[in-house]
Amino acid sequence: MVDIAVIMGSESDRAIANRVTNVLENTDYSFEVKVISAHRNPDELDEYVNASDATVFITIAGLSAALPGVVASKTKKPVVGVPVGAKLGGLDALLSIAQMPPGVPVATVGIDNGANAAHLAIRILEAAR
């Protein structure tokens, strides 16, 4: 079993994922990191989310930033979105992640703030104890 699943849409998001894992490595929580694009690998993403026993998903996405919303549409588990500052200073990704439709909630942290995503996931897990 893994406590936290970290999914990035592209290998280019690795630096942000490293900010997440740097925090998680100092905890007793288990985690895994995957690269699965919501656009290029929708079937793989669907299979992974549905099969995952993770309690919390951290999703890292830039540009259209569809990944957090797609994951949230496939699970009732908490999803934390990390917008990546790829274009427009990351504001496009931030707004895409924050403006989810009713019934598809995604918690959103600051642009490129993988560390806060990890801290939020830890708080969610701690609250569930």
Rank of each mutant, 00 (worst) to 15 (best):
E32P: 03
F31D: 05
S10K: 00
A15M: 14
D43H: 07
R40M: 14
G9A: 15
V49C: 07
V56M: 07
A65D: 02
E25M: 07
K76A: 11
V23E: 10
A61Y: 00
V49K: 04
A61G: 05
F57E: 05
A72Y: 10
N26E: 15
I58D: 05
M8E: 05
S37R: 04
K76H: 07
E25W: 07
L63A: 07
A65L: 11
A15C: 14
P68V: 02
E11N: 15
K76F: 15
E44K: 14
E47A: 14
S10A: 08
F57G: 00
I36Y: 04
I7H: 01
T75G: 08
A65T: 06
S12C: 04
V23P: 02
L24S: 06
T75F: 00
A72Q: 00
E47V: 09
I60K: 04
A38M: 06
A17R: 06
A54S: 04
K76W: 10
A38V: 00
N41E: 15
S12K: 14
D43K: 14
A66R: 10
I36Q: 01
A51Q: 08
K34F: 09
V33L: 03
A72G: 05
S30C: 11
V35H: 06
L45Y: 12
G9Y: 09
N41Q: 15
F31R: 06
T21I: 10
E11V: 15
D43M: 13
E32S: 11
R14Q: 10
P42T: 04
L45I: 02
G62E: 10
K74I: 08
I16F: 00
D28W: 10
D28K: 14
D28Q: 15
V71N: 00
V35Y: 02
L63D: 12
A15S: 15
P42W: 07
A15I: 14
S52F: 04
V49A: 00
T55Y: 08
L67M: 11
S30K: 14
N26Q: 15
T27C: 11
D28C: 10
A61F: 02
A65P: 06
A65C: 04
V70I: 14
S64E: 07
L67I: 12
A51C: 08
P68M: 03
V6Y: 09
F57L: 07
D13R: 08
L24N: 10
N26I: 03
S30W: 09
V56A: 05
V70L: 01
F57A: 10
N26W: 03
N18H: 12
S64F: 08
L24K: 07
R40I: 12
